[in-house]
């Protein structure tokens, strides 16, 4: 179980990205995080694996205080959290398989990994993960030779090879067309259903939220405006989350 308690993040320069945010996520839950651009969704997800240092508040994951972990402890926590990004964040000049194997870096021996030596099981696992997302034939191509949808699949394979207990997906489909968006979301759904991995996914489109999420939380300028099932977002709630002038599309 993930417990976020009174989480606040103030960036240098005084911008308050998160303001006293609290919620819990049950194991195996698919949680959507919605809100306008700049509402603090990315900051929230990055606080959970401490890519961004929270200013105040506490994050407990299965009883372990993530916010109090030191540098070597946070590495052990991070390797159990897979992360998927809007812009895929692949190393474009490296082969696909190396990008996937990067997901094992928290497990393998640091000294050997520097020389690009991975255990045989890891290489096999990487190929298996690529097969799972249907691009095993692209394994030895350079990452930037792949299309956007294929690159995001590599991103998912990289997260999955971590054998994660949680996936943080930061607008994973915002750079993709609607058809590809559903494909990628279905992979996340499968991971959530079959492997029982907790998924925290920030999304722009409400129809995707309705279709895939068990529960949604909404942020507006760092303040949590909503916590409940996606169906409960009616027109009134919608205006609260997205502002008075907003209109529903899709």
């Amino acid at each position: 179980m993930l417990e976020v308690k009174n989480l606040t993040k103030i960036y240098e320069g005084g911008v308050k990205a998160l303001d006293n945010v609290s919620f819990t996520v049950e194991p195996g839950e698919f949680l959507a995080v919605i809100g306008l651009s700049g509402s603090g969704k990315s900051t929230l997800l990055r606080c959970i694996n401490r890519l961004v240092e929270p200013t105040e508040g506490q994050i407990l994951w299965d009883g372990v205080d993530v916010t109090a972990a030191n540098q070597s402890e946070i590495r052990l926590i991070r390797r159990k959290i897979g992360m998927v990004f809007q812009h895929f964040n692949l190393v474009s000049r490296s082969p696909v398989i190396t990008n996937v194997l990067a997901g094992r870096l928290g497990y393998v021996n640091p000294a050997l990994s520097i020389f690009n030596r991975f255990p045989k099981e890891d290489t096999e696992a990487a190929l298996r993960q690529l097969e799972r997302v249907g691009i095993q034939d692209q394994a030895y191509k350079r990452a930037d030779e792949l299309s956007g949808g294929q690159q995001q699949r590599v991103g998912i394979a990289r997260a999955m090879i971590q054998e994660p207990e949680m996936i943080l997906a930061d607008e994973p489909v915002a750079s993709l067309d609607p058809v590809l968006a559903h494909t990628i979301m279905q992979y996340l759904e499968t991971i959530n259903d079959e492997d029982g991995v907790m998924v925290l996914c920030s999304l722009h489109f409400l129809d995707l939220v309705h279709r895939y999420a068990d529960r949604a939380i909404a942020l507006n300028e760092g303040i949590m405006m909503f916590d409940g099932p996606p169906k409960a977002i009616d027109d009134e709630k919608f205006k609260e989350i997205y502002g008075k002038e907003a209109e529903r599309v899709g």
């Binding site: 694996n49 890519l51 590495r75 052990l76 926590i77 991070r78 390797r79 159990k80 959290i81 897979g82 992360m83 990004f85 812009h87 895929f88 964040n89 692949l90 190393v91 474009s92 990067a102 997901g103 094992r104 870096l105 928290g106 497990y107 640091p110 991103g155 990289r158 971590q162 943080l168």
Partner: peptide, 12 residues
């Protein structure tokens, strides 16, 4: 981006 992604995997 890649820096962030690799850090997030628990790499040193």
């Amino acid at each position: 981006g890649p820096l962030e992604a690799v850090t997030a995997t628990g790499a040193t």
